[in-house]
Amino acid sequence: MSVATTAVSRAAVRIPPTVVLSFLVVAIVLLWSLVPGLFTSQDPAVGVPADKFAAPGAAHWFGTDQLGRDLYSRVVHGTASSVSSALVAIGIGVVAGGLIGLIAGFAGRWADTVLGRLVDVLLAIPEFLLAVIIVSSLGFRTINAAVATGISAVGVFARVMRAEVIKTRRAVFVEASYLQGGSRWHILLRHVLPNASRSLLALAVLQFGLSILLIASLAFLGYGDPPPASDWGLLISVGKDYPLAPWLIYAPALVMIATVLSVNRISRWLRKTD
């Protein structure tokens, strides 16, 4: 037992440098979303119109936009909306999807069949199309885009949860536990959930990155909060109308790519150490 733990802890200590960098990036992004005021003193909603379209420089790290607003500040303040909406989406996916998968795996064949078809529908409709329809029904706000993204992710989480539940139920030690008089709840809490949580965690991290992209895509097409909100996708969408100021596109795009890349790196590392 002690040999195994030292081996595990040794592996844990040897985190690859790219993963460390990824954690750093994610930490910065999370800080931007929690305390944007700490990172920039300029106002993201108000600018000096005479300074419009200034290129990146000392005064404005990312340059300014068409109303003279500091782009760096807008990106930092937009992080809250981009990141928190992705978290909302994942929350919905994990909770709703996990619940559906759990019931499907545990309850009888009838529940499994019905829920299975529901999940099939969610998976059969292309993710973006599904999100677009749900957002158009709820209203064009970023929080609704988050809900829509969450609903499109439910199917994936449900499938994984269901597979984990079935796998665990069939495991020999669970049968033994049953025979020893353990109730279904007992099995659920002590065996199924802990085992499932590892794969769900890796999936959640991966889907977090994908949700950021999906919400940005929705914002890009206009299915999100309108200006002066500064969602990354919205910034790019507004920026593309001013080709004379390419930093309006490249700055938020690079921030978004760096974030998702870091999240993906962490997700891959999590899967490897599983």
Binding site: A45, V46, P49, Q66, L67, P226, P227, P228
Partner: peptide, 13 residues
């Protein structure tokens, strides 16, 4: 309209 309103918001502020 959006840009105009944003500017008006600043002025009225």
């Amino acid at each position: 309209s959006k840009s105009v309103d944003e500017l008006i918001a600043q002025q009225l502020g």
